[in-house]
Design a binder for these strands. Structure first.
Lengths: 168, 168
DNA sequence: CTTGATAATCTCAACGTTGAGATAAAAGCA
DNA sequence: TGCTTTTATCTCAACGTTGAGATTATCAAG
């Protein structure tokens, strides 16, 4: 059987037979790209059901899993999120307006801003995260569990080789 | 060894031990998400070196691999690209301004617009695509080839099960 | 202390995408 | 022929992100 990436490579084979040997990374990256799109779209919808953007949901879960006191600096999100500082500021701004988090100035270092999950933020996170996991499970409902594990393990090794070994 | 996703799951295990059993999809999707970001950023830079956006590069290669006469309708890009119609119109607008493609009205159906790769577009595509593949190879330079193939095969099966079987 | 360098966060214009709606042409049907 | 539905593309305001630069605070040296 063949998927969308096979079809794309098949087209290249006809039009540019000279590059076929160099297309093997496309087998991996092309599928990563397509899957990322599908999963992203689905996750976005799941978060939207709780009134939060995908990026905002990322902030919420990062705070939640950091444990008590559910407080992190803006810089911590920068390193954890793979986006730029402007995006983080924007996210926190909107989340503060929604009452999901609050900015707290630190006593020790007045450059840093601590972001704290509010009680309301806790509730939204709990509900949205449950839906998020249910959505993930739904997406993989018809996929063999062993295949998921083996493929995830393969991706882990690729990530390690690429140097993505920490939350940063 | 452990990567960023292991670290994230480790945090969840401490803070929310009740959900650990439901985190297995994260092993797959979390890594797909992170890898997509890394690869995307890299591909974006490679395309930018040739003066084209990532989305524009996608249009160029779609046209190129469609073969002679290197002409597709706007609707074909819609189905192939996983973005909305507004994005396609915007892309074609800018690419037309750059002289990469040209809009040609069809004789048979005057609703459809055919997008044709110009000679300049051909040249840019050839050069950018070569760099693109070199960049891909570079990213996977230190990764075992067999691991890449096996992981790509796993992702293909996931994509198939999710229903992404055609270019559409 | 003072000066310069470093660090953390915010500002803001530009950019690409979204998504609902508009426009216009073709197809189906009476 | 007229009328409605469908199809293809474009319009446009809102949105989140980028990326360079500004701001403010801390640190290191002298």
């Amino acid at each position: 059987m063949s998927d969308a990436v096979d079809a794309i490579i098949g087209q290249w084979a006809k039009e540019r037979p000279d590059v076929v040997e160099d297309l093997w990374p496309v087998q991996l990256f092309g599928r990563i790209q397509r899957l990322a799109r599908v999963v992203d779209k689905s996750a976005r919808a799941a978060a939207a059901a709780h009134g939060v953007e995908h990026g905002e949901f990322d902030v919420l879960t990062t705070l939640q899993r950091s444990g008590p006191p559910y407080t992190l600096t803006a810089g911590a999100f920068l390193k954890a999120s793979m986006v730029t500082s402007g995006a983080i500021t924007n996210r926190i701004d909107k989340m503060e307006a929604k009452g999901l988090v609050e900015r707290v100035r630190d006593g020790d270092d007045r450059r840093t801003i601590k972001i704290r999950l509010t009680e309301h933020g806790h509730e939204v996170t709990r509900a949205a995260f449950a839906d998020h996991l249910a959505n993930y499970a739904q997406l993989l409902a018809d996929v063999d569990r062993d295949l998921v594990d083996k493929t995830a393990e393969g991706l882990r090794q690729v990530l390690e080789t690429l140097g993505d070994t920490t939350i940063k």
